[in-house]
């Protein structure tokens, strides 16, 4: 299966197989009006299977979101058909308005307009905690 290469845009590569839809949603890619290709289960020598997202426009990407989901992802920036930057990600120290706290006792469950902030509390295990109530992020 072939997807045309892009001239100006972003390729999000080495996504763990099955995670591309979550990234699509968290990066709000449905709001873009350019071409976006999601390639699932592409062959990878390193990973066996991987997902890839190709965005056919030079858009701002929230690298914190990507780093949070999977720090092994690589982001390739393409300009005039040439790879100009290959960015390796790391776990961000802080996440703002990326995930929400599931603790019903947390102020974020009731306060309107509040920023949802999570902080990296254990780097080695990638554990994030809510800045308000210290509850561990649920999807970990």
């Amino acid at each position: 299966m072939n997807i045309d290469s892009i001239k100006n845009g972003i390729v999000i590569d080495h996504i763990a197989s099955g995670n591309s839809m979550e990234i699509y949603e968290l990066l709000k890619l449905e709001e873009l009006d350019c071409s976006v290709a999601i390639i699932k289960n592409a062959q990878s020598r390193k990973m066996g299977k991987k997902d890839i997202i190709k965005i056919d426009a030079d858009v701002d990407i929230n690298f914190d979101v990507l780093g949070y989901i999977d720090p092994n992802i690589t982001v390739n920036i393409i300009k005039d058909g040439v790879l100009v930057e290959k960015r390796h990600l790391s776990l961000p120290k802080e996440l703002v308005n990326v995930i929400v706290c599931k603790n019903p006792r947390c102020i974020t469950s009731v306060e309107q307009g509040i920023k949802h902030i999570f902080k990296l509390s254990e780097t080695e295990n990638g554990v994030y905690r809510c800045a308000y109530c210290e509850t561990k992020a649920k999807n970990q």
Binding site: N103, C106, I107, S109, E111, A131, Y132
Partner: peptide
Amino acid sequence: RHPKEGAPLAASFKAEVPIINAGDGGH
């Protein structure tokens, strides 16, 4: 004092005077 955890932190982001947490839920 507030029953919701983290309420004084949320308050401190907006307040223009010092906030002292006098108890936020079980936190």
